[in-house]
Design a protein around this nucleic acid. Sequence first.
DNA 1: GAGTGGTCTAGACCACGGC
DNA 2: CCGTGGTCTAGACCACTCC
Lengths: 241, 241
Amino acid sequence: MNSRTEASSDKVYHQVIEYIKELARDQKISFGDKIPSERHLMETLGLSRNSIREAIRTLEHMGLIESCHGKGNFLVNHMGESLSSVFSMMLFMKGSDYLEVNHLRKAMEIQAFHLALERLSEGEREKLMEIMQPIRDTDDYEAMMQMDHNFHKMLIECSGNHLLGQLMEALSQVCQEEMQLILENATKEYTEWWLSIHQTIYECLICGRREEGLAAIEEHYQWIEEKLKKIMQKSSAVKSN
Amino acid sequence: MNSRTEASSDKVYHQVIEYIKELARDQKISFGDKIPSERHLMETLGLSRNSIREAIRTLEHMGLIESCHGKGNFLVNHMGESLSSVFSMMLFMKGSDYLEVNHLRKAMEIQAFHLALERLSEGEREKLMEIMQPIRDTDDYEAMMQMDHNFHKMLIECSGNHLLGQLMEALSQVCQEEMQLILENATKEYTEWWLSIHQTIYECLICGRREEGLAAIEEHYQWIEEKLKKIMQKSSAVKSN
DNA sequence: GAGTGGTCTAGACCACGGC
DNA sequence: CCGTGGTCTAGACCACTCC
């Protein structure tokens, strides 16, 4: 009854993880489905509820499971959110900063632009156009942030690379507050410039003007970098007071 | 005694997480230090050992804590490994593939190259040189992989961007097996070409030849991409048999 | 041997969701 | 009302580390 004696590899809850992964691999359950209840897994695997729950906590943080109180545990695909929790922890522990995030985002967006140029479909063209329309009529910063987010997300989607998509989504979440700081203090002048940059990127993508598009992306992130530096100066000045 | 009544935000183990983060933020403990034992945390926070352990499991998978049997739980900085577990899960669940990983790695390495060009220090120059020396005398693929890994890691380090470093490390771990498949089947001819590419990247970095270096990186990843495609064809052929 | 993590026991009560 | 997750109780034994 006690499976400690036949422990496969260190911690017992790995058994649970393997079991769930097995179920998933063999298509016995797929995304959105409920996995067996905790009390059920106890019996099936001959483990205590504690161990089951520790395993589920682990899987939850890998983005594979979502616990719903009163309903059950469900197989999901939230790995993006899982990434963002790690990133925000890195930032919290000063293992990185927003400038570094910005560099990474630029790198990914450039790559996405290259990929998108090579495989942009008609449907994506139209979707991009839809997204660009409201951008032009935007003036309050909240709407601006939303539009900006949609635009960049769509650009990444056009690359067809899901990994880039998930990563970028995670990074966006992590630096949402910083972006807000930047945009809410932007003057009207900046706002217009900001919009025009997006317009340029959009047109270049549609028309296949590679170099010009890359330059616009570069300029976009360069601008953010400068703003970030100002914010960081301010906050360090506050600290030293 | 029972703190369920004053639950701050959903799950109780968030209290533990906040508590540990607080300790870390206030410099009461720093990386490498032992955190209070589980039985101790029980009393301090008025929670059961189950909840404490679930919290620790979560923090462990965020890369902030490492559990050592018989010694204690320690504050560490393993967020890179935490990332890699999420990526490998993504690959396992077919949320991505090695081609996508390769694209991401290329994007990051290009960015790292740009950054490195602008801030390469004398110490880093020397370290790069040290790494390059054994590369030239390498012929068995295991050593080759090791050298390759060191070289790319060093390149990223030269960018000064820790985020890139951690991410790249995580991705390297994830696709180690694939790289092995690629390299162990490489012919002598390829091996020499492979080495020369690294040599080129190295020289361009040292001498500030930006365009040429980027082209070499591009070629490097292009080569990997082709090899990956071949491998994927093979494995899908095996499946259909 | 003392301290600590890993795991189990055999229950219990609460809160939530669905029928 | 029942099933389920969230949490607690009040212990227990094992394996490991360090002294």
